[in-house]
């Protein structure tokens, strides 16, 4: 869509049948249960779901930051540029983190260390992953700060986080995350929302960074507005599984899973008057206590006999559009 960059054929990131389980007192919690998607360079994927749907655990699994125990990546493959990250040792993985996959948290207040200068923190990020002489580390840090449009970057290098405004800090966080030229950037959105104008600046910055280094970008969000504005592809998660996947237009124009449809109908619109929002009754299920069959069944307006008995398989709706719902059978 808005994204002009070219998507190459070979995906930069391919996740196949990822399963991450947690052992708890109620038994096994399948926080991520058979998630598959891929991402090309220059492409933006939106991973949408409510809190507890497993989107953050998916992201942590990609980075292999799951606390073990109680967590465990039970099966699956995470292919980054063809290499299976799940086969790497922790040492090797720590080299991948930050340099090939970077994580950016949308809360600029807490992701910088208040006791180190901006320059220090950017240089630190560069030094960890790249073996380059001291002098050029400085140059490089300056370079990334300029890239994210920090005015007077040279003097700003010596500033501390508290001396910068919120928007400026956000840019620094952005600078750190791209300093080692990762190929995949994951943006996790905090539950507390930013001000609209600050959020717009942030989204614009991410777009620019993506265009510049042809990144694969993953947005983890619960907000369909961000998806509409930023993403090319969408994966909708519910109770640990991807229930629908497709291009952003597929999803917005022909939502095929009742959950997606309901979510889209339940958000108010900026551009038009809505008489009455659709309201999804009930609450997201507890992962340790999933109903047999389709987990959305208790809230689904189209629920059928079959739904309560058997988990629906994934049906192909269109070339790149699929959903797991018995209605498509």
């Amino acid at each position: 869509m808005i994204n002009g960059t070219q998507a190459t054929d070979q995906p930069i990131l391919e996740v196949k049948d990822l399963r991450t389980y947690f052992q708890t007192r109620w038994g096994t919690v399948k926080a991520v249960d058979g998630v598959s998607f891929d991402l090309h360079r220059g492409e933006t994927l939106g991973l949408v779901g409510e809190s507890g749907s497993g989107k953050s655990v998916t992201m942590l699994s990609l980075m292999q930051l799951i606390p073990i125990p109680p967590g465990r990546i039970v099966s699956g493959e995470i292919l980054l540029d063809g290499e299976n990250l799940l086969e790497l040792t922790e040492d090797q993985m720590s080299k991948v983190r930050g340099s090939q996959i970077a994580l950016i948290i949308q809360d600029p207040m807490t992701s910088l260390n208040p006791v180190f200068s901006i320059g220090n923190q950017v240089m630190e990020a560069i030094k960890i992953h790249q073996d380059i002489p001291r002098k050029s580390v400085w140059e490089k840090a300056l370079d990334v700060l300029r890239k994210v449009n920090i005015p007077a970057a040279e003097t700003r290098m010596r500033d501390y986080p508290h001396q910068m405004s919120g928007g400026m800090r956000q840019r620094v966080v952005g600078a750190i995350s791209i300093s080692c030229q990762p190929s995949v950037l994951i943006a996790d959105e905090p539950t507390t929302s930013l001000d609209v104008t600050i959020q717009a600046q942030y989204l614009k910055l991410l777009k620019e960074l993506q265009r510049e280094s042809n990144l694969g970008l993953i947005f983890i969000t619960h907000d369909f507005g961000i998806v509409a504005k930023m993403c090319d592809k969408v994966a909708v998660m519910y109770a640990g599984k991807i229930v629908e996947q497709g291009t952003v237009r597929d999803i917005f124009n022909h939502p095929s899973h009742p959950y997606t449809e309901a979510l889209l109908a339940s958000v108010p619109k900026l551009e038009e008057d809505v008489d009455r929002l659709y309201s999804i009754e009930g609450q997201p299920p507890a992962l340790h206590d999933l109903p047999p069959g389709c987990p959305f069944a208790p809230r689904c307006p189209y629920v059928m006999e079959q739904c309560r008995e058997e988990y629906p398989p994934v049906f192909q709706v269109d070339e790149a559009h699929s959903a797991a719902c018995w209605r498509l059978a």
């Binding site: 717009a200 507005g225 998806v227 900026l270 551009e271």
Partner: peptide
Amino acid sequence: AALPSHPDIEQEEMIL
């Protein structure tokens, strides 16, 4: 700056 409700909605670019 507000987020659109559909990917096809063109918004005026006016970022403060």
